[in-house]
Every structure is written in structure tokens, then in C-alpha cells.
Design a protein around this nucleic acid. Sequence first.
RNA 1: GCAGAGGUUCCCGAGCGGUCAAAGGGGCAGGACUCAAGAUCCUGUGGCUUAGUGCCUUCGUAGGUUCGAAUCCUAUCCUCUGCACCA
Length: 815
Amino acid sequence: MIKVNFNAIEKKWQRKWAEGKVFEVKEDKKKKKKFYVLEMFPYPSGAGLHMGHALNYSIGDIFARFKIMQGFNVLHPMGFDSLGLPAENAAVKAGEHPKKYTEKAIKNYVKQMKNLGLSYDWSRMVSSHQPEYYKWDQWIFLKMFEKGLAYKKESPVNWCSKCNSVLANEQVHDGKCWRHEDTNVEVKHLVQWYLKITDYAEELADFKGLSEWPDLIKKLQKNWIGKSYGAEILFEINNEKWPIFTTRPDTLFGVTFMVVSAQHSKLFDLVIDDKKKDVEKFVKKLSSVSKEDIDKLDKEGVFTGSYAIHPLTKEKIPIYAGNFVLADYGSGMVMAVPAHDQRDFDFAKKYGIDIKEVISGGEIKKNAYTDKGKLINSGEFDGIESDEAKKKITKLLRKKKLGGEVINYRLRDWLVSRQRYWGAPIPIINCEKCGEVSVPEKDLPVELPDKVKFGKGNPLDSAEKWKKVKCPKCGGDAKRETDTLDTFVNSSWYFLRYCDSQNNKKIFDLKKVDYWAPVDFYIGGKEHACMHLIYSRFYTKFLRDLGLLKISEPAKKLFNQGMLHGEGGEKMSKSKGNIVLPETISKKYGIDTARLFLVSVASPDKDIDWSEKGINGSLKFVKKVFEYFNDVKIGKSSASSESKLNKTIKGVTEDIENLKYNLAIIKLRQLFENFKEEENNETLESFLKMLSIFCPHIAEELWEKLGNNGFISLSEWPKCNEKKINKKLEMAEQTVDKTVSDVMNILKIVSDKGGKFEKVYIYVMPFEKEYFDEILIGERVGKEVKIFSVQDKDKYDPEGIAKKSKPGKPGIFVE
RNA sequence: GCAGAGGUUCCCGAGCGGUCAAAGGGGCAGGACUCAAGAUCCUGUGGCUUAGUGCCUUCGUAGGUUCGAAUCCUAUCCUCUGCACCA
């Protein structure tokens, strides 16, 4: 077998693609339809790309190449999510400035990506840490500020002591920081910036524009947004009306106590002097436990000394401060119905509070009865079914101006301020006289100062000169906001910037975005379901409402690729030491082989464990292809080859469209296995074209060898000629296969019995004769083979077996 | 606890009502080639049986629907992955 220097071929074509600007695109309204393929841009870590990235980007690359060859004007860009806490932490740990650290990492990523042969339009690359990019983060923030969608408020927030910063709800996993799995998130009361994503909650909970998104993602988002229908009911407390939210207004007559969140900002308005000490003690105790432990705590509370007046019965209801009520959902206070809510039931049992049954149908001994039923003990509503009662009671409350129907969302406003350095500075100036003042648009971007002290607290606090500014409104002394924006702000709209990434006057040209957006095919992990994928939907809608976009959703089709685990089935991570680098594999096998292997193991949406075991199979195939094309005779193809070719074209095209790359590759292999010494040009070229999306470098090289001038990457995808698909031939081939295994079976039986045979005689129907090749079958069975037509008078047939021959089942005689 | 994905022949994985003892790859075994090894090619790879046949068992486990199930339904066990007190 010939030795092939794959690495040299790779370098050659990567250079040619770059020099020929093969993958750079422009808007082209007349000739071609656009197609936008995008893989989620990575955070450039110092560790570089691993095999999992390679898989992810290959999936997108294969599709992009496919679409290019199908004649689409394909936008396939790449960039870097280069701002954010992880980069800052890693840089500080490495003793480097985040900027230097990040830019080094990006350089490395680009190099690695180019080595993978990915078809990106590099001229459009964006990096979110560049002021030219985050200027527009700031610009959008100011637009939101203008519209009242960016605001400041004090509230209990998630605090990670390792990040030294607050976290969004979405960044808290299992009570721990998403970046520090060993660090419990604490609850702190701080003033923070929020984006009012809840203004879009209703539209976000509607998925009609996302028919081509996976159901799983939509379900996850739906749960996350958590739309619930219920009632707001006003309870009078100390002559003030306090609203509470409930989904069960039908249980209103069963309220025996109220619970206010221990984190509620107005908690102490409700605490009478006598109880102050108790409540303070309780709150203090809670603040010393981590968020995770709060989740595990029993329901606990303490009486505040205050009472609420029941809106309908006018009964006095004691108010407790409790650990199980969320301060930022609903109004932070609940009406407790112990008979029909398990949490309230547990609490009532613990503190000996009355349990009043108002829904019949269940037993209330060890547990609350939480199902629906007929009302009892509910005055005029007795005997009415729950659903009906909900409506009637709400109606009555509305009439009395004591409440009404409301929709509540689990989704909270997005906390975007971070007390860290490596983020886009929030473009606000704090003036003692004027309050929070926007940085004028002409002064954008507010660039990060280079010289800051890293250590404790927010590094930006140490940039004294940078902080000091004049108030744009009154001209007096003022200070810059030192908080920076959450990293997810950058990724919420980057896909739009690619459409016009070099624009330094506007966020993007409206016409260009109108041409390219939305993303037609978006590829990324499902772990982003409740973060990036919700935020970017929110941003898209906001920018639409600003008049910048005509679309309402960022991507038409979403595909979640499977995760590539390490050898033992564990997540690939530096700390586990199971990271496989593309370079390592590429050096050994060539990058085309690696790409081919990655997508042939399993369907791209499935999680797989990395293993080098099977890669030799891919390498063997690639080598065989290379060797075959190296000295192939171009001539005529058999009808069988042409039939197979067209069938393969059909199947492969469908498989790729459906992201079944693994199946497409099998079909290509089977086609290739069938190639004879001589094939016609069309067959050979079509095969190479289909292979090229998986193995672009080798395909280009062989394409050139066949005498072509242009790039195979830009050639036209083969079309299936249905007429050439010949079912008869296929049947005939099956007959041959069956005959071969029959012969093998006979030989086995005979030799088991101690017989020794050298010659095989096969008696076929006259019309089948052309499908049976003595030499080929001889090779397959490892014996000398003679084929006779049953009508052949001179045939050698001592036992008259030819008489038993049937169509599709030839007679066999061995001796 | 809730939600989702999944358990397939030695391994990885396809199949998702009949053409299924189940694609493809890996591994292994036998054969061809070779002085030999490697590479390559062919064949085989649940069991029994048989001159190419027939039968039995198998797709986590147990039932069910059906003329017919790896594929559909029900229960059950295990694995993974999200979300977790949202009133």
C-alpha cells in the first residue's frame, strides 16, 4: 500500500481555500438562495479545542459544505465568546492579563479550527472582548435602559464567593455555581442591574415560530418560563392591602395562616416589636446556610405577631415568616391552605396550626389532599367543583376589588450585572444629582481600562482615573458604573453581527441582516436550553421591536449534537485528564479520517464515548479510496455501478438532510466497495463529491488528480437519476451473494465430514448467467468455480443437479 | 420528587410492525497471498441440524395487542441527563 502524506495534503488545500477566499460570501439576491449555518461560538479556553469541539464543528461543516454544493449562498461564520468570568479566573490563575490570555487562546483556536478544514468565512470573525463588538452590547443596553427594560433594584441574589460575583438564576445548578461545582451559592441582598426579560415572558412561552426546534428544548424552556394561571388576592394587613398569588383560589376558605418569605424586603413591616428578636434570629440563621442547604431544610418559620384579614370571611389569620417561600416569585407571600397543599400541611403540623378541609374527596391524615373536588365549608360556594369555584371566587373578588385573575411566570428578570473585570462595562454614569445617567452614544464604547488590580473585590474599582467622569447631564463630578455585563449578553445577538461584522457605524446594516437572518440551521448543545437559547430569543424580539429586525426568532432549525465523552464515559475535562486533542489524532490518522470517524460512530445527536478502537476502520477506508483513485482507469461503468451510484446519491442526500451522517457514510462505503477497476468519470466524480463534505482535503486532492481545475468544495452536488436505478440488477446481486454463502455452507458441511473438494459447479438460469462471474465468485469462495447455464448441453453435471436449479437459486455441485 | 433520553447479538452502534439471527464498524477465527511478518483480499462469527435445509433461543425483565413485535401498549428494574419547595 502506498504511503500518503495526509498532513501535507491538508496544508495544501487549507492554504488554497484561504488564498481563493473559497468560503467568503456576500449577499447575492439574484442568483442564489441564502442559507445560514451556525455552530454556537465557543469560549476560548486556554486548553484549546478538544475532540468534542471537533465533532460539533464537523457536524456544522458537513452541512454547510453540503448546502454550498447544493447551490445555496452559504453563510458559515465563526467567532469567540471571549468575555466572561471563566476567562478572567483562568487568566488571573495563570498570572496573565485577561486580554493577553484570551487573545492567545483565540489565536490558538483559529489555528486549530483551520487545521480541521472547517469551511468558515473568517473575514466575518467576531470576538466579544473587542471594544468594536461590546460597544454594541452597551448600545443595546442603553436602548433597553431608555425603554425601561434595564433597571436597578435591590434584592436577594445568588452570590458565588469564588467568582466574587452575583450569578443569574440560570447559572445556579444544584445550589452551586455553574463554574465552581464545589462552591455553594450564598444569598446576599444587593443592588443589581436587571433586564426585564419578563416583559417578553408571554411571547417567549409561545413556540409557534420554532417548529423545527427539538421538542425537548421547547419543553425545557416552557418549564423554565413556567406560565401559570391563577388569581391575585388582596389580604388586608395593618390597614394595608397585600397581594398574594395563588393557583388555587378555590381553596380560599381553607386559609388558616399566611407565610411571608424570610427574604422579603418588607418583612419587618409585619413584625411586631415583641417578635422582632425571634424573627431576626430566624433570618440570621437562614443567611448562614447555603442555598443548597436551604433546599434541604424542613419547612420552618416563626410567627411575626401580625394578622391578615381574610378578604371574604374577615377572619384573623396569623402571619409567619417562612424559609420555604420564595421572595421573588409572586409577591413573596403565600396564603397557606394546609388541607390542600403539602408544604402548608407540613408547616401546620409542625406548628400546630388548624387544618381546615374545604375540598372534599380525599383523606387528610398524613398528607394534604391536593387534587380537585367539590367545595365544602366554603359558605355560598359549597358543592361547586374546583374549576368552577376558581372562576366564581375570582369573579367575586374582582367585584369587591379584592383581587382578580393573573398570569404568573416562573421566569425572573435577568440579573446582568457582575462585579468583575472581564465583561462589557455597563454604560452608565452614577451622578449624585442626576442619578443613573446613560453614557452618550457618541462616547461608546466604554472601554475596559487595561490597568486594574486583580485580587479581592471588583478590579474595576481600582481604576480610579477611569471611574472619575463628568456627569453628561449636569457636568458635575460623577462616577462610572463599575459593574460589567453578564457574558450571556454577548452571545444573545452575535449571530446577527456576523451578517455585517465589520460595521463600525451601526450595530449592523439592516438590509444585510434582512438578507441573512434568521440562522437557518443552528447547532449546539442542549445545555443551553434555558440560558443562551432563551436570552437570544429575548434579544431577537427586543431588536425587532426597536425596528432593526423583521424576524422574531433567532434560528429556524435547531440541532442538538450529542456529547462526546472521554474514554470511560465521563465528561471530557482537563481535571479528569481525559481530553483528546484533534492534533494528536490528526497526526496519527489525518484530519479527514478523524472527521469521518467522528460522525460514523453513531448518529450525531447521540452521546458517544471516545474510543480510538474503531478509527482504524475509517483510516483503512480513506487509504483505500486514495489508492484506488491514484491509479484508476477512467472508462465505462457497468449498469450495476450506475444503479448503485444513483441509489447512493438518493440515499446519501436524504441522510445528510436528516443529519444521519453515520448512515450516509455506510452507503458511501458500500458504493465504493462495489467499484470495479474501471469506472466512468461521472461515477467517480459523484462519489468524490459526496465524500468531500466529510473528507474535504483528500477529496480536493483526488479531484485535482482526476484532472479538474476548480475546487470540489464548490462543485455541484450530484443529482440522482432515478431511471438508472435498476432493481433487477440488485435482485441478481442478491442471488449471487446468496449463492456464495450457499457454496460456503456446502463446503463447510462437506469438509466437516472429512471430504475434500476443489471444484465448484454452479448451474444458473440462462438469463442469470451474465450476473455470475466465475473469477469473482471463485475468489469469494476460495475454490475454482465453473458456471453453466442449465441449457448448456456440454455442461459437466454428473449428478444431474442442474435440474434442481430455480430462478434465484442455482444448483450447486462440488467435487 | 418532576421531566427527558436510553437499555440490541464479544464491543461500539443501526433498526423502530412482516423482507430481522438483526445494517455498518471494531474485535476474533479460518482461508488466500508471502520464505515469514505486516498490509491487502475472501469467508465466517447465538445454538442444534443439513450438500446449500430445517428447527430452537435471542434485542433489560414480565405481561398484553396482533395472523405476525427488537419495533406498538401496560407494568417493572437499571443507566444517564436536566429541573428541583414557583404557592
